[in-house]
Amino acid sequence: MREFFKKLILIFPIVIFFVSLGVGSYSIPFDQMIDIILYKLSGYTIFNEQLSAQSINVLLNIRLPRVALGLLVGGALAVSGTAFQAVMRNPLVEPYTLGLSSGAAFGAALAMAVVTIPVQICAFVFAGLSVGISYLAASKHGETSVISLVLSGVVVASVFTAMLSILQISIDPLQLQGLIYWLMGSLHTASWAKLLAVLPYLIVGYTIIYFFRWKLNILSLGEKDAGSLGVNPQKYKLLFIGAATLLASAAVSVTGIISLVGLMIPHMLRMLFGPDNTKLIPLSFCLGASYLAIVDMISRNLLTYEIPIGIFTTFLGAPYFIFLIRKTREGGWN
């Protein structure tokens, strides 16, 4: 049964990918969709002899980059959440609760508004800074308690949000609205250019976490155990936190703040399949990707105008977060 579920989740993104491609306010029948893809790949079609340039444009330039970005960002947030939770040994941390998202958002906005360095790099620097501050503020004698890490994350997030507000006030007010919309987390500006801009960073982050994922298990036992088992805890912690930060900050830099994906997905998977990160990392990617693609599919089709996707994930994730806090509290505040 478990094996069946596992396989199901692993092929889920592929199914969602095609369903998402087929759904949208511009109607493209399924047979046309297949033909367009075939036409692009081989130059031949099966069902239709003629294809409209518009449906090709909608499918390949509008829908495809959006669906692909949704999958990649969802996967990135979930994988990053899984890695943070293992490294920090805390089921409540994820990019949003660590203050990372706000730091990355500030960095990205800063790069957009003022500095002329690439958005993703600036986002990464400030995301790293926020995680570092949250983590160090909550650590005492090398130990970090579950709740204090979340609390310091809240504080760091509010500091960066405040700095973002200052930035918003001081830049041209005409850009303000766009920035606010972007901050709420949205995929509607997805394009090939954005996808390509963020892809290298995502690939680096994914690769590191995927190859070293077994070491996450060792780190999740704690510094002392990890050390005795032959894994240098400081070195690998830094590696994983760096890679997870890269994934999440890259995601934020193109889609704004999409909260709590990295919390829900890993926890659901851990309940189903246990804490083994060799399984969790690929599964997190697949489920996180599917989750965000589904949410985006809903947000794309619900109303006649775009609704920021971050609103949905927050509504869905918040009750889950509360449930998790209660559950953690039963085990003591350690």
Binding site: N217, G222, R270, G274, P275
Partner: peptide, 9 residues
Amino acid sequence: FGFDYTAFE
């Protein structure tokens, strides 16, 4: 342990 690993894991 923080996470519920199995004996084998």
